[in-house]
């Protein structure tokens, strides 16, 4: 940089002399080729970047517009009748009891510990730990607890009195004492809180989400059927979780710790279809599948039995493989 040559005429450019005489190469052709190449490259790059346009969503079905127009017309006219859903016609007489036992095949996985980050003075006092209760297997008998069995559609319902005593649904030390419970529609439920801290009980699918002050309780009467069991949570302590099932006819049972269940007073002498549910089931909507073709056990967790009148029909041991409950 000794000389910036701002105005010196004798400042020779460095390389002009070097290349004198070698400029025989025509510029046009190869520069044009070169530039077109670049242009193409540019266009191609743009095209490549457009791969983002590809949809990765599930393909949506296209409605059949013509069928829709026809259907619309038929819906508008009142004449288009026909029964919606099939009613079950009664063919048998008398009442019978259904019983059975659910057994978990294999060794159950260790329950996960729940994360308790609130009200630890009460919930995890003295180093207590809370565990996920979704899969409870009896160590001695292998019985699978908290399986819900209920009748799907029955032709007739035995008249029984609605129990006057409310069903107690309690929570203590930040756990629901009954992780799965069943009730009849219209049966009062005493939602209790035996903790020194406040809880709220949120039964999804219903209008019930109520504050339950410490040591108090409140009455809840289910007004509608739930279909499959619905979740009950406490929003203050989000790890608390239970399931409730409400049935109009009351033909519903939850398996006990040994995996057994009993549903009394089912219509006998005719086919009764039952639905089985478990929280951890991998089937649709929690439907629990089992390999029992003799009962016509379907992938929707349904089986059919014909009960003896005034007797007890035992479907025996229902073996549930680990894969059916997602473990």
């Amino acid at each position: 940089m000794r000389n910036l040559c701002l105005s010196r005429e004798n400042c020779l450019p460095r390389r002009v002399g070097l290349t004198l005489g070698v400029s025989s190469r025509p510029g046009l052709q190869w520069s044009v080729a070169n530039c077109l190449l670049c242009t193409m490259l540019l266009c191609m790059t743009l095209l490549c970047t457009m791969t983002g346009c590809g949809q990765s969503r599930l393909p949506a079905p296209t409605p059949d517009s013509e069928a829709a127009i026809a259907l619309r017309a038929s819906l508008a006219s009142d004449s288009a009748g026909g029964a919606g859903g099939s009613e079950v016609v009664s063919t048998g007489t008398g009442w019978g009891t259904l019983t059975g036992r659910f057994v978990f095949v294999g060794s159950p996985p260790a329950a996960k510990q729940l994360i308790v980050d609130k009200d630890t003075a009460v919930c995890t006092a003295e180093g207590r730990k809370l565990f996920d209760q979704s899969l409870q297997v009896d160590e001695a008998t292998g019985g699978l607890a908290n399986v819900v069995v209920f009748a799907r559609k029955v032709s007739r319902v035995k008249e029984r009195e609605m129990p006057e005593e409310p069903l107690v649904f309690d929570q203590k030390v930040c756990e629901f004492l009954t992780p799965v419970f069943a009730a009849r529609v219209g049966q009062p439920i005493d939602v209790r809180n035996s903790d020194p801290i406040g809880h709220n009980t949120n039964v999804s699918g219903t209008s019930f989400n109520q504050l339950i002050p410490a040591g108090e309780g409140t009455l809840f009467t289910p007004a509608r059927e739930t279909g499959m069991p619905t979740m009950v949570t406490c929003n203050i302590h989000p790890w608390m979780k239970a399931y409730a099932v409400f049935r109009e006819d009351g033909y519903v049972a939850v398996t006990a710790a040994d995996g057994s269940f009993t549903i009394p007073d089912l219509p006998a002498g005719e086919e009764v279809e039952l639905q089985v549910w478990h929280e951890r089931s991998t089937g649709p909507n929690g439907a629990l599948a089992a390999d029992m073709p003799e009962l016509g056990w379907s992938s929707k967790g349904r089986f059919t039995v014909t009960l003896e009148a005034d007797g007890t029909t035992d479907i025996g041991e229902v073996q549930i493989p680990a894969s059916a409950v997602g473990s």
């Binding site: 259907l71 819906l75 009142d78 288009a80 009748g81 026909g82 029964a83 919606g84 859903g85």
Partner: peptide, 8 residues
């Protein structure tokens, strides 16, 4: 079922 009873 595509009936009025059911759908409506």
């Amino acid at each position: 079922p595509e009936t009025r009873d059911f759908l409506v």
